[in-house]
Amino acid sequence: MMVPPCDRDEWAPRPHAFRRAAVDAVLRVRLGAEWVAPSLARDRLTTWLTEHRWPSDQLDDVVFAVSEAVSNSVEHGYGIEARSTARPDHAPVEIDAEVVPAPDGGRQIVLAVRDRGTWRPPVPGPSDRGRGLPLIRSCMAEVVLRPTAAGTTLVIRTPSVPQAAPRS
């Protein structure tokens, strides 16, 4: 007896067809030092954090902090002015992020934003500039600035968030 195709087992949904791929615990982004870089960093980081089911209130803070750090690399590290369309050769902005266990049993992200530009200390005195690092510090658990002759690295540790529930 022949069974109609719609009744065959091979047409039944398979549980494995709906499994999601594992999300990488590490994110590596390499961008050119140009004014579109902060936007690209925000998009890639938002997608990655969403895949990790990062709480939305914390997600916004992390994305803001990284966007500000990338903007600082472009403007201050490489000296590219805000309205410039310059695209210097060999001027990367690198972002490395990793989800790590937090001491309280939650999870955190450790991020490094790195450039190969020249560190320029803030100019003393009144200015409408120089608010980026204090803003980053206000929403992150830890911020370490490492300027060297080879470039600048900003290491950021997020506040702890609860472990994500397992995916079904």
Rank of each mutant, 00 (worst) to 15 (best):
S73I: 03
S73V: 00
S73Q: 03
S73F: 04
V74A: 07
V74G: 09
E75T: 03
E75G: 15
H76F: 11
H76T: 11
Y78E: 04
Y78R: 04
Y78T: 03
G79S: 12
E81I: 03
E81G: 13
E81Y: 09
A82L: 08
A82Q: 11
A82I: 12
R83G: 12
R83Q: 15
R83T: 14
S84R: 09
S84Q: 07
T85V: 09
T85I: 09
T85D: 15
T85W: 13
T85P: 00
T85H: 11
A86G: 07
A86Q: 15
R87N: 10
R87S: 10
R87L: 15
P88E: 13
D89S: 08
D89E: 07
D89P: 11
D89W: 04
D89Q: 05
D89K: 05
H90D: 15
H90C: 05
H90M: 07
A91V: 05
P92S: 11
P92D: 12
P92L: 12
V93R: 03
E94C: 10
E94D: 14
E94W: 08
I95A: 06
I95W: 05
D96M: 02
D96R: 11
D96A: 04
D96W: 02
D96C: 05
A97I: 01
A97K: 01
A97W: 07
E98H: 07
E98M: 01
V99T: 10
V99D: 08
V99K: 05
V100A: 06
V100H: 02
V100W: 03
V100Q: 01
P101S: 12
P101M: 08
P101Q: 07
P101A: 13
A102M: 06
A102T: 03
P103D: 14
P103M: 02
P103C: 04
D104H: 06
G105T: 03
G106A: 01
G106S: 02
Q108M: 09
Q108H: 06
Q108R: 13
Q108C: 07
Q108A: 06
Q108Y: 00
I109F: 02
I109A: 09
I109R: 00
V110T: 07
V110D: 05
V110C: 06
V110R: 11
L111W: 12
L111T: 14
L111E: 05
A112N: 08
A112H: 09
A112M: 06
A112I: 00
V113H: 07
V113L: 08
R114F: 00
R114V: 04
D115L: 02
D115K: 02
D115Y: 04
R116I: 02
R116T: 13
R116W: 06
G117Y: 10
T118R: 15
T118W: 08
T118A: 15
T118G: 02
W119I: 03
R120Y: 08
R120Q: 14
R120T: 12
P121V: 00
P122M: 06
V123I: 05
V123T: 10
P124T: 05
G125K: 08
P126A: 14
S127L: 04
S127N: 07
D128V: 01
D128C: 08
D128F: 11
